[in-house]
Amino acid sequence: MLLDPRGPRFAAGLTAIVFVLVLVTGAWWLALAQAVIFAITAVDPRKGPYALVFRTVVAPRLAPPTQREPAEPVRFAQAVGFVFALTAAIAYVAGATAVGIVAAAFGLAAAFLNSAFGLCLGCELYLAARRVTGRPMAARVPVD
């Protein structure tokens, strides 16, 4: 499965906004909601609510993509995001506010880097692991 790389980048922008709200309000339920979104998109990046908004509202207004990216690195990145968001939610509920802040801040940093610069840390980690294990894969594929 290949994805339009602008979709995950759009989703990262919305995720960054959610993490900012979590940090400002300390709302554990918002971190939990983001964890649920990450869980959905870790299974299939096309099924999440942010992907739906991108496909129906944003993508029709853009030129067709010139490149596609494999879904596996994106799925891995979403699983990593799930861990951070779930950790933040549990920490806030448990009263470990400092841990919640750190977890949400890490999630915000990763989401911001992806949305602003197209640097997906989880994707890069996945691709590095593939290179180390002798199974490299391309990060992007040109559209024919």
Results as ranks from 00 to 15, higher is better:
M1Q: 13
L2C: 04
L2Y: 12
L2R: 12
L2D: 10
P5H: 00
G7M: 07
P8I: 08
P8R: 04
P8S: 01
R9N: 02
F10K: 09
A11K: 08
A12I: 03
A12E: 02
A12T: 01
T15F: 00
A16M: 07
I17Y: 05
I17F: 09
V18G: 07
F19S: 05
V20F: 03
V20S: 05
L21T: 03
L21F: 02
L21P: 05
L23Y: 11
V24N: 03
T25P: 03
G26L: 00
A27I: 09
A27E: 07
W28T: 06
W29F: 07
L30H: 02
L32S: 11
L32C: 06
A33L: 08
A33W: 00
A33K: 02
I37P: 00
I37Q: 08
F38P: 08
A39V: 07
A39L: 10
A39I: 11
I40C: 01
T41E: 09
T41F: 00
A42R: 13
A42F: 06
A42K: 07
R46C: 02
K47L: 04
G48K: 05
G48T: 09
G48F: 12
G48V: 12
P49V: 14
P49T: 05
Y50E: 03
A51D: 04
A51F: 04
L52P: 01
L52W: 15
V53Y: 02
V53D: 09
R55N: 14
V57K: 14
V58L: 12
P60G: 06
P60N: 05
A63E: 05
A63Q: 05
T66S: 09
R68E: 07
P70A: 12
P70G: 11
A71N: 11
A71Y: 04
A71S: 15
E72V: 12
E72N: 13
E72P: 12
P73D: 07
V74T: 13
V74C: 07
R75A: 14
F76T: 12
Q78C: 06
V80T: 08
F82C: 12
V83H: 06
V83I: 15
F84R: 06
F84N: 13
F84V: 06
T87C: 08
T87R: 05
A88F: 03
A89V: 09
I90V: 15
I90A: 15
A91W: 15
Y92I: 02
Y92K: 05
V93L: 13
G95C: 03
G95Y: 02
A96N: 10
A96L: 14
A96M: 11
T97S: 02
V99L: 10
G100M: 01
I101N: 11
A103Y: 04
A104H: 08
F106R: 04
G107K: 11
G107N: 14
A111I: 08
L113T: 14
L113D: 13
N114F: 13
N114P: 00
N114T: 12
S115Q: 05
S115N: 05
F117R: 14
G118T: 14
L119Q: 11
C120A: 04
C120R: 06
L121I: 15
E124G: 14
E124T: 15
Y126Q: 15
L127C: 10
L127S: 11
L127H: 01
A129G: 15
R130M: 10
R131I: 00
R131K: 12
R131H: 02
R131T: 02
T133H: 04
G134E: 10
R135T: 13
P136I: 07
M137K: 10
M137E: 15
A138I: 01
P142S: 13
V143I: 11
V143E: 15
